[in-house]
C-alpha cells in the first residue's frame, strides 16, 4: 500500500467519522422560551433550509405561540407539520405565520416540513 493510499484511507475514515458525529451525535443547543407578560410563550422561528432555532424549550400548560417566518421560496419548507399534535400550517414566504399550541403533557414533540427533510423539536417541561 502506497503512502497516498494510506493518507486517503485515514482521511476518508476521519471524514466519515466526523460526518457521523456532526449530524447524528452532536447536540444542538436548545432555546428556552420565556413567558411574556400576557402569559403566552412566544417564539420566532426562521425557516430557511432548516428551522432556527430548531430545539425550543417551553413550560407545560401555558399557551405557546410559534411565529414562523419562511425566508425562502423553496417548496420543501412550505408546510410545517406537528404530527403528534395534529397541527399543520402553510407557511407563506416572507410572512409571519403563527401556530398556536396548548400542550399539557411534558415531553418532546417533533415538527417537520411536509417532506420530512427539515426537523425541529419542542421540549415541554
Amino acid at each position: 500500500m502506497t503512502a497516498d493510499q494510506i493518507i486517503v484511507i485515514i482521511a476518508g475514515l476521519g471524514l466519515a467519522a466526523w460526518v457521523a458525529w456532526y449530524f447524528w451525535f452532536s447536540e444542538t443547543k436548545a432555546v428556552k422560551v420565556q413567558t411574556s407578560g400576557s402569559g403566552i410563550q412566544e417564539a420566532v422561528i426562521k425557516v430557511k433550509g432548516g428551522y432556527t432555532p430548531d430545539v425550543l424549550v417551553f413550560e407545560a400548560r401555558k399557551p405557546i405561540k410559534l411565529n414562523f417566518i419562511r425566508e425562502e421560496t423553496a417548496a420543501c419548507s412550505e408546510e410545517v407539520i406537528f404530527s403528534g399534535l395534529g397541527k399543520k400550517a402553510t407557511l407563506t414566504p416572507y410572512k409571519t405565520i403563527p401556530v398556536e399550541l396548548n400542550i399539557d403533557e411534558p415531553g418532546e414533540y417533533n415538527f417537520q416540513c411536509g417532506m420530512g427533510m427539515l426537523h425541529g423539536k419542542l421540549i415541554i417541561e
Partner: peptide, 19 residues
C-alpha cells in the same frame, strides 16, 4: 443557488438534506 443556500442553512442546524 438553492442547493448551496439550502445546504448551508441545514448544515448550521446540524442537519443534512437533498441540497
Amino acid at each position: 443557488s438553492q442547493f448551496y443556500t439550502g445546504a448551508w442553512a441545514a448544515f448550521k442546524n446540524r442537519s443534512a438534506n437533498m441540497h
